[in-house]
């Protein structure tokens, strides 16, 4: 089937099988390998991308469902060589170690701050329900989100 999807502000038209998962389309067809696959039960969140601005799990969406929609992946956040404030906050607060869950974490928490500009620690932890990290114990991820929220306040 032919789909036209705007990925990171670029309109892309491809023929795909109906069963193609959005994440396989992103990684395989577009070679945007920053989006990862960490599980097969829609739980780990390593595949989180934004569709029409909202965080979703690209392993639980078909590429054909994204037809006509806008997809943003981790590769879209850095602008003109400047990290997105959430990326910068993760670096500043050591919110990543092996880096595998990181793109999903960043995309998810970017969406969090869109919904709630100044989340409390419990709100951050609850939001991260859909993202598993095995390295950091979440301590510094939570700090990074707090750091980003405090820095972007009023911005």
């Amino acid at each position: 089937m032919q789909v036209t999807i705007t990925v990171n502000n670029r309109s892309i038209t491809r023929d795909v099988e109906a069963r193609t998962l959005l994440v396989d389309f992103i990684r395989g067809e577009l070679a945007l390998t920053g989006t990862h696959v960490g599980c097969d039960t829609s739980q780990c969140g390593a595949c989180t991308v934004l569709v029409d601005g909202k965080s979703i799990k690209s392993c639980t969406m078909l590429a054909v469902e994204a037809d006509g929609h806008e997809v943003s992946t981790i590769e879209s956040l850095e602008k003109n060589g400047e990290l997105h404030p959430m990326q910068a906050a993760f670096r500043e607060c050591h919110g990543l170690q092996c880096g595998f869950c990181t793109p999903g974490m960043v995309m998810s928490t970017v969406d969090l701050l869109q919904n709630n500009a100044n989340p409390s620690e419990p709100e951050i932890r609850e939001w991260l329900e859909g993202n598993i990290c095995r390295c950091t114990g979440y301590h510094n991820i939570v700090k990074a989100v707090q750091h980003c929220a405090s820095g972007t306040k009023g911005a």
């Binding site: 829609s42 739980q43 969140g45 989180t48 569709v51 909202k54 965080s55 979703i56 799990k57 639980t60 969406m61 998810s108 969406d111 969090l112 939001w127 329900e129 859909g130 993202n131």
Partner: peptide
């Protein structure tokens, strides 16, 4: 579920 699931 989680936020991503709730968005879909």
């Amino acid at each position: 579920g989680d936020p991503q699931v709730r968005n879909r």
